[in-house]
């Protein structure tokens, strides 16, 4: 059994130098809808933040990879996603179309970017530390573990000053690396609860049909149904992602082949790490 896996937001636009026709077509649709042109990501054509641009770029990249594979006659038995990879994953499952995936990415991104008026937030990528120690540091610093990707790869989220402090403590406590990334909002944390009304309204403005390919979500590894998708889209923004549990769950139900639907591997590298620990 094979599974198409959709990563979340990329950290840069530089993942593919040459864009093909699939990417160009979807990038044009993105530009028409949002003003942001993924073919020229550094241009100033859209009044949106860098985070929203990256989120759109990730969705366009995944949708184009998906279209290319479909044209080659490939089809997944199951689908799974990480964080904002949910939007193209929903399209791949047949629950929504490409246009809706772009709209959801854009609308959620813009809604989340309104958090910038409340404070300055950041993400902190920590590698090489045990979860127990990192959880203690997160608690002391007042930040949250937003992603547990493997036993040694984590993403923290919270207020920027607190993230800086948590990363310094992590390095002092033996982390192999601790890097900060800017963001609009502290994704996958309870700090986003205050935006949920706005997100609920966005989700309720879309029609989701039953996925025709099983789609498993990365919070509780449950199969998403059409009825549950709107609430999941809101819920997942406020709760941590557990990629290692998701990967192990998928292996447990018989998935033996994983295809990452992106320009460059990320989840596949986490999978490699998890496999090496088995």
């Amino acid at each position: 059994m094979n599974c198409w896996i959709f990563p979340g937001q990329p950290v840069s636009f530089t993942e593919r130098v040459e864009h093909n026709g699939y990417f160009e077509e979807i990038a044009r649709a993105c530009r028409a809808m949002t003003g942001f042109d993924p073919l020229c990501p550094d241009s100033d054509g859209a009044d949106i933040t860098e985070s929203v641009k990256l989120q759109l770029y990730g969705t366009v990249a995944s949708l184009s990879c998906c279209a290319e594979l479909r044209d080659k006659g490939e089809k997944p038995d199951t689908i799974a996603c990480h964080s904002m990879g949910i939007y193209p994953a929903l399209a791949a499952s047949g629950s929504i179309d490409r246009q809706a995936a772009l709209e959801l990415t854009f609308s959620f991104g813009v809604a989340l970017s309104s958090m910038r008026t409340k404070g300055e937030y950041a993400l902190g990528c920590v590698t090489g530390m045990e979860e127990k120690r990192l959880a203690e540091i997160a608690r002391k610093s007042g930040v949250f573990i937003a992603n547990r990707n493997t036993s040694r790869h984590f993403l923290l989220a919270g207020e920027k000053a607190k993230i800086v402090a948590a990363l310094e403590m992590s390095e002092a406590s033996g982390a192999f690396s601790a890097r900060i990334y800017p963001c609009d909002a502290p994704l996958h944390t309870p700090l986003l609860r205050e935006t949920t009304q706005k997100l609920k309204m966005i989700a309720s403005g879309h029609v989701f049909v039953e996925p025709n390919i099983p789609l498993f979500e990365p919070l509780t590894q449950n199969r998403l149904t059409a009825g549950r998708i709107p609430s999941f889209l809101v819920d997942e923004i406020c709760r941590p992602v557990f990629w290692d549990r998701t990967y192990m769950f998928l292996k447990g139900i018989g998935v033996s082949e994983f295809t990452e639907i992106a320009f460059s591997p990320l989840l596949s590298k986490f999978n490699r790490w998890i496999d090496n620990e088995l």
Binding site: C125, T127, H153, S177, R179, L266, K269, R272, W273, N276
Partner: peptide
């Protein structure tokens, strides 16, 4: 290679 690969090489 990237930072994930680096940690894999460390191990």
């Amino acid at each position: 290679l990237d930072s994930i690969d680096a940690l894999q090489l460390v191990v």
